[in-house]
Nucleic acid binder design. Structure first.
Length: 346
DNA sequence: AGGCAGTACTG
DNA sequence: CAGTAC
DNA sequence: GCCT
């Protein structure tokens, strides 16, 4: 019989597998990494016990689970471990997985730090940065070193995801300030916060404007901002008082619909929309639909309704955009009616 | 067998 | 440009 | 790695 092992534990194993592969050779295992991460996410959302599914021989019905991953799940259920995982752990120190969580440190740098300085933990990374050792490495300088120190501090400030209600308050404060600026035609919350998720990792904001520069300026200078992570013409990123990261993108108003759709996600939902677009001879990104026939012809959408209309779909509310059947439901014109506060009476 | 997204910011 | 993040 |  199978061991006591939860869906979550299996998901964690696949995430670990993905991270270790990333450290070993991110490019070489690019698609395997994505595959493992997809399955990890699917397992966390799975409403059923994987063991029951496995007992029925139906593992491959899980999204993203094929023959190889099904075998790995069975291996986990039977032995509690994965041979592949153990082998990788022997090659790559597990502590490096935490180092990957530091902003600005990806697999290349994590391995560089490990091989050149023997760093295998965030604590060691912090010590090395304080001692000015990182700047001696190729491609690193005093500034990168400082950034890493700040990222480690930020990591300590927010270990868990934020509750949506807390994040919403923080988001609305910024949003109001943006809306009050001249030349801001629209400003909206995007991301998981807009999708109504219970917890969120960061705040995504979107503005429509023809003059992004002064808006980005105002954004990074908002009183709630404690640190500017990045600032560009169309995209800036800050850390707020709450420790939350907040990203702002600026797009011209005639492209606001595609942008809002894109940045609202979820990623899985976006992938499905892109597929539908491709079937219609169009590629879809945050800026527009673009004809794939080489003409470069663009179809601009100022509203999300236009985006869905272009794909012959009824409008799908953000709360449903998780690729959990909403596309099919929309195609069948059978979207569930969401319950709104106004629908509830005492 | 071939696709799997593509763009923006930093140093 | 490489590396990173979304 | 999985999917079409």
């Amino acid at each position: 019989m199978f061991r006591m092992i939860s869906n979550r534990q299996i998901a964690d194993a696949f995430d670990l597998l993905a991270d270790l592969l990333r450290l070993k050779d991110a490019e070489g295992y690019r698609f395997e990494i994505i595959a493992y991460q997809r399955v990890a996410e699917a397992l966390r959302e799975l409403p059923r016990d994987v063991r029951a599914l496995a007992a029925e021989g139906r593992l491959q019905e899980i999204d993203g689970v094929g023959k190889a991953i099904a075998a790995k799940i069975l291996e986990l259920l039977e032995h509690g471990t994965l041979r592949l995982l153990e082998e990788l752990k022997a090659e790559v120190p597990q502590g490096l997985v935490d180092v990957l969580r530091v902003n600005g440190v990806g697999p290349k740098r994590a391995m560089l730090f490990y091989q050149q300085l023997g760093i295998t933990s965030v604590a060691e990374l912090e010590a090395a940065a304080r001692e000015g050792k990182l700047r001696t490495l190729p491609g690193m300088g005093a500034k990168s070193e400082q950034k890493i120190l700040e990222s480690i501090a930020a990591l300590a400030r927010r270990t868990t995801r934020a509750r949506a209600d807390i994040a919403l308050q923080a988001a609305e404060r910024i949003l109001r300030a943006l809306q009050a600026l001249p030349n801001v035609l629209r400003a909206e919350i995007a991301g998981s916060l807009r999708r109504g998720r219970a917890t969120i990792g960061d705040i995504d904001l979107l503005v429509a404007t023809h003059t992004p520069a002064p808006i980005m300026d105002a954004f990074v200078n908002h009183p709630d901002v404690v640190r500017v992570l990045a600032q560009g013409e169309t995209k800036s990123s800050v850390e707020l008082l709450s420790g939350l990261q907040c990203d702002l993108r600026a797009v011209p108003p005639e492209r606001f619909g595609t942008a809002l759709s894109y940045f609202t996600g979820s990623q899985a939902h976006n992938i499905r929309l892109r597929e539908l677009a491709l079937q219609r001879g169009l590629s879809l990104n945050e800026w527009a639909f673009t004809a794939t026939d080489g003409s470069g012809r663009e179809i601009l959408c100022a509203s999300e309704e236009e985006v869905y209309a272009q794909l012959d779909l009824p409008y799908i509310p953000p709360e449903l955009r998780e690729d959990r059947g909403e596309i099919e439901a929309a195609q069948a014109n059978a979207l569930p009616n969401l319950i709104e506060i106004s629908h509830i009476r005492a």
